[in-house]
Design a protein around this nucleic acid. Sequence first.
DNA 1: CTGAAAGCGCTTACAG
DNA 2: CTGAAAGCGCTTACAG
Lengths: 335, 335
Amino acid sequence: MTRRATIKDVAVAAGVSRSTASRALTGRGYVATDVRERVLAAAENLRYVPDATARYLKQQVSLSLGVLVSDLRNSFYARLAAGVGQAARTQGYSLVLAEDGGSAEAQVEAAETFVATRVAGVVVTPVSADVTTYLSRHRIPVIEVDRQFAAGACDAVVVDNQTASQQVIEDLIGLGHRRIALFIDETTWTTGRERHAGYQAALAAAGIPLDPDLVVSSGWDVDAARSAATALLRSDERPTAVFAANNVLAEGVWRAANDLGLRIPDDVSLVSFDDAPWMSLVTPGLTAVAQDEAALGAAAVRRLLERIAEPQAAPVTVMMSTRIVHRESTRAVRP
Amino acid sequence: MTRRATIKDVAVAAGVSRSTASRALTGRGYVATDVRERVLAAAENLRYVPDATARYLKQQVSLSLGVLVSDLRNSFYARLAAGVGQAARTQGYSLVLAEDGGSAEAQVEAAETFVATRVAGVVVTPVSADVTTYLSRHRIPVIEVDRQFAAGACDAVVVDNQTASQQVIEDLIGLGHRRIALFIDETTWTTGRERHAGYQAALAAAGIPLDPDLVVSSGWDVDAARSAATALLRSDERPTAVFAANNVLAEGVWRAANDLGLRIPDDVSLVSFDDAPWMSLVTPGLTAVAQDEAALGAAAVRRLLERIAEPQAAPVTVMMSTRIVHRESTRAVRP
DNA sequence: CTGAAAGCGCTTACAG
DNA sequence: CTGAAAGCGCTTACAG
């Protein structure tokens, strides 16, 4: 047999109608026990695998979830996607995955695919409000993860960026640092804005005047971060500590310090937001604000499925906790 | 309007039949220019997005590819998946992604989802021949990547593990090493078998007798690798160099060396198969056999699409090149 | 408890 | 060049 078995084949083999075969196979509706068994045996025999495409068409919704992240090569997104996949699978959903490379247009393109394939919902790390707008217009539930562009319009799973950042800066201040640089790629997303706010709040609380020169902006990739960091660390007024607002920026600073022959933490202390795997492998290990990406992903799926079940409920923002992992990349400033 | 627009809505709005609307929208078949424009305008207006589910059902194939890897948290798989996604998107395919955590049953389960959703083809890093058997039985083209379990029965994209491993060991021998350990998690997959063979070949060529105690097997995760490596490095007969057969094992060795206070390369040289991102961040940087994961993924998609176009062609195995990245984790053995 | 019929939203020969 | 009709493989009220 070259053709794939359909429910009709199963029905014929079991000597019943397609309706009955369907009821036996799905478990919905009445079927006599012996009939059910006959149908299941026939299905087994024919290696019948229901065509999800046909089922979805009939039911108008699929058992798959869309996941849209910026870049799988960044461990943060890879782990997040892994967490989403894990949780989705547990709930019987499969994953349609897309990467956007940080582009808003690419996000909308991916979103078109999601609506075309009728995914049941979408988990996204947004780069603008466009995806959410687009998907919402097509009545597809969305949940924003990591940052929010559509707060109040859809669910979200985030962490308290400000508190964590403030804590980390306070620790640095406690070590005697006064010239603390914030190394950051954007301050327009909620992540950047809040991490910036935490930085400012900690300085303000300690009565340290804000020095705008110490808030250094960088491009978003490692190469850009590396050169921006090189400029920063080479300046006469080099900071005694740097807070890198994410793992890519931290990598840039790390590489720049190596390039310049600066020792961490002796010449400069370094703290990162996001705890990438490499940070526990290098010497000294990097002190970092760790997020549990798998937990973020799982929470996103959980919330998304609740939303699917109850489309009219008010949007909720789930706040996940962070954890500061103290390693050896900071030290007291020399008196 | 609360309902999603269908092609019927578009047809009505444009004042044509559904057939004509379909021809205009898909670009297949004749449509008068002005009619086409009217249809497209109507579609735009109604924010019409064709239901891929219905299209697939009718055409009996989808424009999506299945990707099945072990673990997205391993940078090798994450980058491979990214490469596949990139290439797939370029060709108009979307990605259904699944992780198997290294389990053969999980692979078959994922494969069931793939056949249910009628993916056009599957890219897999197999852990047994089961997936390929299962998918082939359902007439779904498969391509194995990284290792082969169904050589001759389906396409594959691999690297020349043996040659690369042999080269790396020869380099070590050239540095005067004689007690070189192979640290490996399995020798039943093609990857492990070939890397092992390369190790043996290099020793044989140099007339160095094989010492079975120097082929050290380890569990597959970092914790297992770390403790196995600790035992290895702590032994009286400690090797002067270690060749870790993949990036996870290399991480285990790295951590074990740190735990024990051993310096690389002074106390022991270390070389890895797979060049993970952290290997260029640590000091000393790790010498490693690098694979271009994005290129592997792209080649897999290319070959898979050829196979889809020509299902009867003989299976081909595509061999990708590797590159040895020399860093500072090896040194000449003390005389 | 079972089956005939309708229908999900498309595409595609085919007749005109 | 266009439209009516059939059909992809399911599920699901509904009648019996």
